[in-house]
């Protein structure tokens, strides 16, 4: 079983991201489970959402404490929350940031920084970074394919909103795949 923890602020679509990543994984033939850290849904407040991936039916119901992957939607969270808690060697941390900062990473954790806000502003016209970071996650982790991710986004959004979110996800996916971050 592999586990993903998404850190964001209320209103950034972290729960939606978790649900769409789980949907993408499931439609591609893997058991998945997505759920939020419950009851903290205030705009701007630190929130978490979780995804599990497994080849077998998932029974575990506790929150995720030792994630294989983290996504951080807002790098200022790092001052408030130990986003790297429980990570170990081989893990992947994807952080939305425009700055090249030094992070106190656990040993052996691979860091990927991407300016998802810039991509989201250019592609979607709003600083909502969840779909961009989902594209980065797909490329970096290999847990979900770009096709499955596109399908999941289109299952949630319609028309132009779906198109722009898919574009943002694809752009981030390709940047990671081509090592342009």
């Amino acid at each position: 079983m592999r586990e993903l923890r998404i850190h964001g602020r209320g209103g950034q679509g972290s729960v939606t991201a978790a649900e769409l990543i789980a949907t993408a994984a499931f439609t591609a033939g893997v058991y998945s489970q997505a759920f939020p850290a419950f009851g903290v849904e205030r705009r701007g407040a630190p929130v978490q959402a979780f995804v599990r991936f497994s080849d077998e039916k998932i029974r575990l119901r506790s929150q995720i404490y030792e994630p294989d992957y983290i996504i951080v939607q807002d790098s200022t969270l790092i001052h408030d929350v130990n986003v790297f808690a429980g990570m170990s060697a081989g893990g992947i941390a994807i952080i939305n940031t425009e700055k090249d900062l030094k992070y106190n990473l656990p040993e052996g954790v691979k860091l990927i920084t991407i300016d998802a806000t810039k991509i989201a502003m250019e592609e979607i016209g709003r600083p909502i970074t969840n779909t961009t970071l989902m594209g980065a996650f797909a490329a970096a982790s290999g847990e979900i394919t770009l096709d499955a991710l596109e399908g999941a986004i289109r299952s949630r959004f319609d028309g132009k909103l779906a198109d722009t979110n898919v574009s943002a996800a694809k752009r981030a996916y390709n940047m990671i795949k081509e090592g342009r971050v």
């Binding site: 978790a18 649900e19 789980a22 949907t23 499931f26 058991y31 998945s32 489970q33 997505a34 759920f35 939020p36 419950f38 009851g39 039916k57 998932i58 119901r61």
Partner: peptide
Amino acid sequence: FDGFILSHVFEP
């Protein structure tokens, strides 16, 4: 069924 733990989880 357990609130949040089941009511708010996405699963197959």
